[in-house]
Nucleic acid binder design. Structure first.
Length: 506
RNA sequence: GCCCCGGUGGUGUAGCCCGGUCAAGCAUGUUACCCUCUCGAGGUAGCGACGCGAGUUCGAAUCUCGCCCGGGGCACCA
C-alpha cells in the first residue's frame, strides 16, 4: 500500500486524525509521575553554607510550582550537617530569598534538630548488620575502595560495632579515628556504592547546636531519614547528587520509595553560580559583596532590579532538563522588561551630558505624563533656552539637521563641537524625526551602574564587568524611592540603589 | 580509569517513550517594516537547528549499533 493510499484510508476511518493540530511550545512544567493531588510533599533543601543564588531560586521555584499544582506540602529544610561549613547568616539568606520569591513553605526545620532521630536510624543499620565502624585512615579507605576490597572492619560483629557506636556517642574517640560505613557492595562498578561513610566525627562547634554533638551524619543518610520523616513524595533537584546510594540506604531502612527527578544545573553565561569561583571575587574585593548586582545571588539580582516574578516566569519558560545549558541573560531580562514596562515611570536621564543653547527658544512649561499609556501621574517642567543632551546623540546629528527635543519642540542644529548650539524650529511634530531626551539646567546629578558579565571565556574575571555612567536627570527623579525602578527613556530600566545612584536592570 | 546522564538554529526549549500530522513549534536574539513624541512595550514579516556514520523501515529528530563531543559522580561536602 502506498503512503497516499494509507493516508486516504486513515482519514476515512479516523477523520479527526487528519486535521493538523496547532503546535505550540510547552505550557507550564511537565506533569509529575505518580503525583496525586493533595497527596504530595516537596522540599527545599539548602545547605546554609553560602548565599542563595539564582540556581537555588530556580530549583526552589520548580518545587514550589509543583507543590501548588498538586496541592502538596512544602518543606524548607536546612541541610546543616557539616558544622565546618554552615553559618547563621546563610540561613537568613535563604529565608530572605525564599520570602522575596513569595514561596510559601508549610514547614521549616533544620536537619541538625533531628540528630537523635538520625542516630536512631544509624543504630538500626548497625544492629541489622548493614553498617560497621571502621578505623582505617582516610587514605586506606580510598585505596581499598578503588581496589574493590573490603577492610577487616567490615566483618566486625554487631556487638563490637554497637560498643564502638556507644563510645562514639559519648565522645570517647578522636576526630578521624572512626567512621561508620554503610555496607554496600565493594565490587560495585559504581564506586559510590563501595561502603560510603554514614557518620564521621567533626570537632567543630555548630552554629545552632554548639558542642552538643560531634558525630555528624553525611548527606546520604541524613537525607534518606529526613525525606522519610517529612513524608516527601517527589524530589526535584539538580544532578550533582548521587541517587543510587541513597536508594540503597532507604531500602535497608525499609523506607518508602519516592520519585526522584534530577536536572542539570542552572548556569548563566558569564556568571557561574559555583562558590569556588564566586568567593574569591568577594574576598579580593573585585565585587562589592555577595549582593553585588553582577553576582548571581538572589540579593544581587534583587539589587539589579530583577523582579521575583521574572524569575518565576523564566523558570516556567525554560523548565528543567538533563541537557547541559548556559542561559543567556537576555531571556530573563526580556521577561523582566515586559513586567517592568507597564509599571515604570518614564523620567528623562541624559548620560554624558553636553550643554546645548537653543536660540529663539520659547519659554515653556510642559506637563509630561510619567507613562505613555498607563496613568502613573505627571510632572511639569519649565524650559528656557538651555538644555543638556546626551553627547552621543549630539555627535550623531549632522549640523543643519532638525531633530526633536522629546515631548517639547523641534530644533535645528546650527553648530557642533566644541560648543553645540541650535535654534528653535517649530512645535509641529515631524513624522519620523529623531527624538532625543533632554534636561534643563535645573536637574539632579545621577550615576548609573551598568553590570556586565563577571567572567570572560575560561573563568577569567572580567575587569570591565561594571561600568558607571554619569549624567543628569530631571528634578522629578528626587521622588524616586530606594528600590523603585524607573525607565530612563532611550537608556533602560534602572533601579534606585542608594541616593543618586541607580543600577541598570536591562 | 570506572559508573551514570546528555547532545534540536547564536541562546533556551517543544517534539523522542508510542516512527508518518516535523520541508521541525515557541521564546530569546537578529534584520526589515508598522505602531508609538523612547533605542521600552506592542504588531507583522524574514534569518537561523535535529553531533557524525551505519542499520531497520515504504518512511527516522524519533528505534538499533558504532563513533565523536559535553556534563555529573567515584569525599570523614551537600
Amino acid at each position: 500500500m502506498s503512503q497516499s493510499e494509507q493516508e486516504r484510508l486513515l482519514s476515512e476511518k479516523y477523520p479527526e486524525s487528519a486535521a493538523p493540530q496547532e503546535r505550540e511550545g510547552r505550557v507550564g512544567l511537565p506533569a509529575l509521575p505518580n503525583a496525586l493531588k493533595g497527596k504530595t510533599a516537596f522540599r527545599l533543601p539548602p545547605e546554609p553554607s553560602g548565599f542563595m543564588t539564582v540556581g537555588h531560586a530556580m530549583a526552589f521555584t520548580i518545587n514550589y510550582l509543583y507543590k501548588v499544582e498538586y496541592d502538596g506540602k512544602l518543606w524548607l529544610r536546612f541541610e546543616d550537617t557539616n558544622p565546618r561549613k554552615v553559618a547563621p547568616e546563610y540561613y537568613e539568606s535563604f529565608r530572605r530569598g525564599i520570602g522575596w520569591l513569595s514561596i510559601i513553605c508549610d514547614f521549616e526545620k533544620n536537619v541538625s534538630d533531628d540528630m537523635d532521630l538520625i542516630y536512631e536510624h544509624g543504630r538500626k543499620l548497625l544492629e541489622m548488620g548493614n553498617a560497621y565502624a571502621c578505623s582505617c585512615d582516610e587514605a586506606k579507605v580510598k585505596r581499598l575502595r578503588f581496589e574493590g576490597t573490603a577492610c577487616e572492619h567490615r566483618e566486625n560483629s554487631v556487638e563490637v560495632n554497637l560498643r564502638i557506636w556507644g563510645e562514639l556517642l559519648s565522645k570517647k574517640h578522636e576526630q578521624g579515628s572512626y567512621v561508620i560505613r554503610f555496607k554496600g557492595d565493594m565490587k560495585s562498578p559504581n564506586y559510590s556504592l563501595r561502603d560510603t561513610n554514614l557518620f564521621r566525627i567533626i570537632n567543630y562547634p555548630h552554629p545552632l547546636t554548639g558542642e552538643k554533638y560531634n558525630l555528624w551524619p553525611t548527606y546520604d543518610l541524613a537525607n534518606a531519614v529526613e525525606d522519610e520523616v517529612c513524608g516527601i513524595t517527589h524530589v526535584l533537584r539538580s544532578s550533582e547528587f548521587r541517587n543510587e546510594l541513597q536508594q540503597l540506604i532507604r531500602d535497608a531502612l525499609k523506607f518508602r520509595r519516592l520519585e526522584v527527578i534530577q536536572f542539570s544545573r542552572f548556569n548563566f553565561r558569564g556568571t557561574p553560580v559555583a562558590k569556588r569561583l564566586l568567593r574569591p571575587l568577594v574576598e579580593k574585593k573585585l565585587v562589592t559583596g555577595w549582593d553585588d548586582p553582577r553576582m548571581p545571588t538572589v540579593d544581587g539580582l534583587r539589587r539589579r532590579g530583577i523582579l521575583p516574578e521574572a524569575i518565576r516566569e523564566f523558570t516556567l519558560q525554560v523548565g528543567y532538563t538533563k541537557t547541559e545549558h548556559e542561559y543567556d541573560w537576555s531571556i530573563l531580562l526580556s521577561i523582566n522588561r515586559k513586567l517592568l514596562d507597564p509599571v515604570s515611570k518614564r523620567i528623562f536621564f541624559v548620560p554624558d551630558p553636553v550643554d546645548l543653547m537653543v536660540e529663539g527658544a520659547p519659554k515653556r512649561t510642559v506637563n509630561l505624563a510619567f507613562h505613555p499609556q498607563k496613568n502613573l501621574g505627571s510632572r511639569s517642567i519649565s524650559t528656557e533656552g538651555r538644555f543638556y543632551l546626551p553627547a552621543a546623540d549630539l555627535k550623531a546629528i549632522k549640523n543643519g539637521s532638525v531633530f526633536r527635543l522629546m515631548d517639547l519642540y523641534n530644533v535645528e542644529l546650527t553648530s557642533v563641537d566644541p560648543n553645540p548650539s541650535a535654534r528653535y524650529a517649530g512645535d509641529e511634530l515631524i513624522q519620523g524625526s529623531k527624538k532625543v531626551q533632554w534636561v534643563t539646567h535645573s536637574n539632579k546629578e545621577v550615576h548609573v551602574l551598568v553590570p556586565g558579565p563577571l567572567f570572560l571565556e575560561g573563568d577569567v574575571f572580567n575587569e570591565q564587568s561594571l561600568s558607571e555612567v554619569r549624567g543628569y536627570s530631571e528634578v522629578a527623579v528626587a521622588d524616586t524611592k530606594i528600590g523603585d525602578i524607573v525607565q530612563f527613556p532611550r537608556f533602560g530600566f534602572c533601579r534606585l540603589d542608594e541616593s543618586g545612584k541607580f543600577i541598570l536592570s536591562g
